[in-house]
């Protein structure tokens, strides 16, 4: 016997219609972010699907937000980082960049104590931007560094927006960006991580 279909309440039906209306304008942007975070179409689709499932019960909140896009990007970034942390702790999930396990070894912000005074190695190391090398280095970059560079360098979120999105101070944010660029430049130049962040030749600032 066929199940009797229970009519949806007005609120539920409107929720469904408005959910689509609220999300649609942002899906292209979010998918692009997800693809760049994860590196493959399959994982990008999984991340978007997880995001939508997470956000659907909160569409009331979403409807009251003036700028939904950074809010959605932030939720997705947090989900992505949580997945990365989870995978980093799992013995069955190998990760590309070996520096990742150390970075997520502690619960707290791995960059919280890094002072933001010295320029990073990325300011000195010659970068080689031929496409193949860049693609290879990009794929080897740990997911957290990649996500940061996606948000800042590619998508052009400002420091102010990222402070809110990542819930960290300006100094911490800049240190994290500097480390991400350093790591990328190391991978590009084929060198391994080097010493302290003291690469300005004229440290005393003679100019």
């Amino acid at each position: 016997m066929a199940k009797k279909r229970i009519p949806l309440s007005f609120a539920a039906r409107r929720a469904q219609a408005q959910f689509d209306q609220l999300l649609r304008p942002h899906l292209d942007h979010l998918y692009r972010l997800a693809y760049r975070f994860t590196g493959t179409a399959d994982r990008a689709e999984d991340l978007i699907q997880d995001l939508l499932v997470r956000v659907y019960p909160r569409c009331d909140e979403l409807a009251s937000i003036e700028q939904p896009r950074p809010w959605l990007a932030r939720v997705m970034y947090r989900m992505f980082i949580d997945q990365v942390r989870h995978n980093a702790r799992s013995p069955h999930m190998p990760i590309a960049d070996s520096s990742l396990a150390n970075e997520f070894a502690d619960e707290g912000d791995p960059y919280a104590d890094v002072a933001d005074t010295a320029p990073g190695p990325e300011d000195e190391v010659e970068m080689h931007f031929d496409r193949e090398r860049l693609t290879r280095a990009w794929e080897q970059l740990n997911p957290d560094h990649r996500a940061l560079l996606v948000l800042f360098e590619i998508e052009g979120y400002t420091l102010q927006e990222l402070e809110v999105m990542l819930e960290c101070t300006r100094g911490t944010l800049k240190s994290r960006l500097s480390r991400a660029r350093s790591r990328l430049s190391e991978l590009l130049s084929g060198t391994e991580p080097s010493g302290p962040l003291d690469r300005v030749k004229d440290e005393r600032g003679g100019k």
């Binding site: 609120a11 409107r14 999300l23 649609r24 699907q49 939508l52 956000v55 659907y56 009331d60």
Partner: peptide, 13 residues
């Protein structure tokens, strides 16, 4: 993806 999310549970809307 939107359809799957809508089936995932009640929306607090």
């Amino acid at each position: 993806a939107l359809a799957l999310a809508r089936q995932s549970g009640p929306a607090r809307f």
